[in-house]
């Protein structure tokens, strides 16, 4: 018995040592970036191997935050929150609804629509960019957030597919039992399915927020007023291959821009823990 306890402890220690070391390797590059943001721009270039700055400076944060042409990063962050926040709500909600339709209902042409969804996922944005721009321009949406946000409310292939996989993992007996009790399909979706796919909803939310936060291409194409630029797009402007880049300021702002996603992840990942596993539905 003593042996057993010892063995358990050793495995536990090994587990933690291993995960910790491995974690360090994983975050080394991120650490490097974060710490570099406190280095002088020239020091970043010359002493790439050093993790810690020779001279700790906040200069990069000050010049970086100033932004461009009088538009500070405060504005860019606010815009990113608006875009990513609203898009995420839209994408998570609409994708869950659509996924339920695909996973649990039988209707004509279902496989055709499903294939269309996959097809849309495979098409690189760059080639439909021009026609889409013309379309949105005709609608008078260019220069506003509408072309970026509205499509998010109409279901995103990746999240739809993800939710489908999860809904398919829920035993049919549950639906049938509820149906016997006189629940409508809609009620089943809201009362039974939604709570059970919480992990995939949370995952969708994390991804959606992160992708919208990082996305600069649609901002580049559709936005015109610097007052509406998001962080991802503003970050690109520190780098100019021909006229010189302020890497220090870019690293500083890039590091700052990680925080919102990181905080979202930390708060959301707790909910991943509660899945079917904890409710123990299947007997």
């Amino acid at each position: 018995m003593n042996d057993y306890v010892l063995k358990r402890r050793v495995t536990k220690v090994i587990y933690h040592v291993f995960t910790f070391l491995f974690a360090f390797v994983m975050i080394y590059p991120v650490l490097w970036m974060a710490l570099s943001s406190f280095k002088d721009t020239n020091e970043i270039l010359k002493t790439a191997q050093n993790l810690f700055p020779e001279k700790f400076t906040l200069k990069n944060y000050i010049t970086g935050w100033k932004g461009f042409g009088g538009y500070s990063f405060g504005i860019f962050f606010r815009n990113s929150f608006i875009i990513a926040g609203i898009s995420t709500i839209g994408a998570v909600a609409s994708s869950a609804v659509v996924a339920y339709g695909f996973a649990r209902c039988d209707f004509k042409l279902k496989s055709l629509w499903f294939s269309c969804m996959l097809l849309a996922m495979m098409l690189p944005f760059q080639v439909i960019m021009i026609p889409q721009y013309i379309l949105f321009n005709r609608l008078g949406w260019v220069g506003t957030y509408l072309p970026i946000i509205v499509p998010q409310f109409l279901g995103q292939g990746f999240f739809i597919f993800l939710n489908i996989q999860f809904i398919k993992g829920i035993p049919m007996d549950l639906d049938e039992a509820a149906n016997m009790d006189g629940c409508s399909v809609y009620k089943i979706f809201i009362k039974i399915i939604l709570p059970l796919i919480k992990p995939s909803l949370v995952t969708s939310a994390i991804f959606s927020f992160m992708w919208r936060w990082d996305d600069f291409l649609s901002a580049l194409i559709y936005l015109s007023d610097p007052l509406t630029y998001p962080v991802s797009y503003a970050l690109k402007m520190f780098a100019d291959p021909t006229a010189g880049s302020d890497w220090g300021a870019m690293f500083a702002m890039a590091t700052l821009s990680l925080f919102p996603i990181f905080v979202i992840f930390l708060t959301m990942q707790k909910y991943l823990v509660e899945g079917i596993a904890s409710t123990g539905i299947k007997g």
């Binding site: 659509v98 339709g101 209902c105 039988d106 209707f107 629509w113 439909i128 979706f189």
Partner: peptide
């Protein structure tokens, strides 16, 4: 279920016909 299915996937259909299929065919 026949009808409900379409109700549920309606957002997708609107998005697909509204913003995707035309640019896709054009490309």
């Amino acid at each position: 279920k026949e009808v409900a299915g379409y109700v549920f996937i309606l957002p997708f259909l609107i998005g697909f016909f509204g913003f995707i299929i035309l640019p896709m065919l054009v490309s």
